[in-house]
Design a protein around this nucleic acid. Structure first.
Lengths: 207, 207
DNA sequence: GCTTAACCTGAAGTGAGTTCAAATCAGGAA
DNA sequence: TTCCTGATTTGAACTCACTTCAGGTTAAGC
């Protein structure tokens, strides 16, 4: 549950993973602006100031969460689409993977979705800016992956020929738009969502 | 230029419209969190405190901008789709209207898009909460309009029969997703956008 | 010209996020 | 064991936007 949040070299008594877990929970459920940074410290059982040992700022923590989820999504996309043909099968696999997520990952996608615009403008401090650039790079890579998938499909005549980058933008928009309204326990299950979006995207890129 | 921002009964020396104009400019270009409330006061040529004569808070101003744009969008949708048949023509008209906007309205759409999640949670003060409810109501009305359009189209066999509400959500997601990346003077014109999204939506709701 | 409400202001208050200087703790070297 | 070092933590103080307060100015309309 917590191990997945251990990214680099961590001391054995590091609370970094706990902080990330608590932050994902609060940022995702109550919203980033609405959650007090001090509350995260309370939940982890440390003073507010100790947070700054792990993250340069509240925003830096947010950016880290975003990078983490982008990285995971990219890797998963590559796993499930590698060597899959025809392209419509690969597209379906990518979409299925997008909705094959844990409750925590749902929260992370919601956080990501809600704060994409943060990636547009430079950050004041060096560490934050570095994390922003990392996230931007991952976004670009993900866009390239979807574009590549569609381009391959067009070349192989699985899809009609159109601007693959524009189409990737639209497909991606549809796929991520879900996180705006999806709620666990709501009227639609993730499987319903997969079916809905899968059909929609195939029609979108189809004839 | 400014008259369109005069909503209700305004004294002749009211600076409300000027404040809204300056806020739309800054919130849209620099982002809401990133723009200092005091800077708006400077630009309008009043002290910071005078802002509170017109808006209860920075957030109240933001909510007002959102309601204003939602209201405009809804009215415009109704204008251009009234009595238009067949449904695919009405759909095209609605999409064309969505991208027939002034530069200021582009900014307002960007603001709206970036802060939709603000409408999800209650506001602390009464006036803010009232504005939030107004915005929520308008969102619901807009969703109902698109749903209605699609439902009519399905009934008339212009579109294949599917869940009209789900399809409306997807079409709307596609239409508004544009404001995340569209920039005036960028590689695509609004006319290019209209064509791209129009085609995409027709395929989405089609067979 | 006077009244009244609209409009405006400087000074002070608030609260979340952040910085600082210093203390504690745990694991490895001597 | 004892000492050393870096990781971890802390309380107190600071900053900066946003906001409130208590009262002053202005102009529209009678």
């Amino acid at each position: 549950m917590v191990q997945t949040l251990l990214p680099e070299t961590e001391g054995p008594r590091s609370k970094r993973a706990l902080i990330l877990a608590a932050a994902i929970e609060s940022f995702g459920k109550d919203g980033y602006e609405h959650t007090k940074w001090a509350k995260i410290a309370d939940e982890v059982g440390i003073g507010q100031t100790a947070l700054y040992h792990y993250f340069e700022s509240k925003a830096h923590c947010l950016l880290t969460i975003m990078s983490l989820e982008l990285s995971r999504s990219l890797e998963r996309f590559r796993e499930v689409t590698a060597d899959v043909t025809p392209a419509d099968k690969a597209l379906e696999a990518a979409i299925a993977a997008a909705y094959d997520v844990t409750p925590r990952e749902v929260l992370q996608m919601r956080i990501l979705q809600s704060h994409m615009d943060l990636l547009a403008t430079p950050r004041p401090s060096e560490r934050e800016e570095a994390e922003r650039q990392r996230a931007r790079g991952l976004v670009r890579e993900i866009e390239q992956e979807w574009t590549g998938l569609l381009a391959r499909g067009m070349k192989a005549k699985d899809f009609p020929k159109r601007d693959p980058h524009a189409m990737a933008t639209l497909v991606l928009a549809l796929v991520v738009s879900v996180w705006r309204w999806y709620r666990p326990g709501g009227p639609m299950t993730l499987d319903d969502v997969r079916e809905l979006i899968s059909g929609a995207c195939l029609r979108l890129v189809g004839p």
